[in-house]
C-alpha cells in the first residue's frame, strides 16, 4: 500500500507544481503570462457549452436504459455464454456498465464490496475492470462533441473491442494472480 500512497501523493503534488512551473517557465521565455492565461481560459466556457447537446443525447439514452432494468435481462441472457469462458456472472454487470456510466459502475463496485467484502475475488476483478478502463461513451460524446463531429466512424467499435479485451484480461489476470 505504501507504494500506492506514495504514487498518489506524487500525483497530488504534481498539480500545484505544474500550475506554478509552467508560468515560471513562461516568464523566463518573456511570455505575458497573465494575459495569455486569460486568453486561453476564455475557451473553457465555449467548449463546455458546445458539448451539451452531445452529452444530453448520450446520457439520456444510458439513463433510460439503466432505469428500465434491461441490464438484468442482458446479464441473464449472457450468463451461459460467459460461464463457458470462465467469466464470473457476478462481474458481468460491471463489464457492461463500465463503458456506459462512470457513476453507475462505481455504484456497482461498492455493491460488490457490500456483498462480498474487499477481500473477495469478485470485488478485485470488478475493481480491476473499473480501474483499467474509461467511460467510453462519455469520452466519445465529449471529445467528438467539442469539435462538432457527428460521423464517429470506427471509434465506437474500436473502443468497445478494447473494453471487452480489458474486461477479459481483468478476469484472467486476477484469477491467476489473486485467485
Amino acid at each position: 500500500m505504501s507504494i500506492i500512497d506514495m504514487a498518489n501523493r506524487v500525483g497530488a503534488t504534481l498539480i500545484p507544481l505544474i500550475i506554478v512551473g509552467i508560468p515560471a517557465y513562461g516568464l523566463l521565455k518573456k511570455v505575458k503570462v497573465y494575459e495569455e492565461f486569460v486568453e486561453g481560459a476564455k475557451e473553457g466556457f465555449e467548449i463546455a457549452v458546445r458539448i451539451i447537446p452531445y452529452l444530453v443525447a448520450i446520457l439520456v439514452a444510458i439513463g433510460m436504459f439503466r432505469a428500465s432494468g434491461a441490464m438484468d435481462y442482458l446479464v441473464n441472457g449472457l450468463r451461459p455464454v460467459l460461464s463457458l469462458l470462465g467469466f464470473p456472472p457476478e462481474n458481468l454487470p460491471m463489464a457492461l456498465m463500465r463503458p456506459l456510466s462512470g457513476s453507475g459502475s462505481l455504484g456497482l463496485l461498492s455493491d460488490l464490496i457490500g456483498e462480498y467484502g474487499v477481500d473477495s475475488l469478485f470485488t478485485k476483478i470488478g475493481a480491476t475492470m473499473y480501474g483499467s478502463s474509461e467511460t467510453t461513451f462519455y469520452v466519445l460524446a465529449v471529445y467528438f462533441g467539442s469539435v462538432g463531429i457527428r460521423q464517429t466512424r470506427h471509434a465506437v467499435v474500436a473502443g468497445l473491442l478494447a473494453d471487452g479485451a480489458g474486461a477479459l484480461a481483468a478476469v484472467y489476470v486476477c484469477k491467476l494472480m489473486l485467485g
Binding site: 486561453g40 481560459a41 475557451e43
Partner: peptide
C-alpha cells in the same frame, strides 16, 4: 456536468496557453 467542467477547463486551458506560447 458540462457547466461543472467550465472552471477546471478554463484553468487548464489558461495554463496550456502559457505552455504553448513558451514553446
Amino acid at each position: 456536468l458540462a457547466i461543472g467542467l467550465v472552471g477546471a477547463m478554463a484553468l487548464w486551458l489558461g495554463i496550456m496557453r502559457i505552455a504553448d506560447k513558451a514553446g
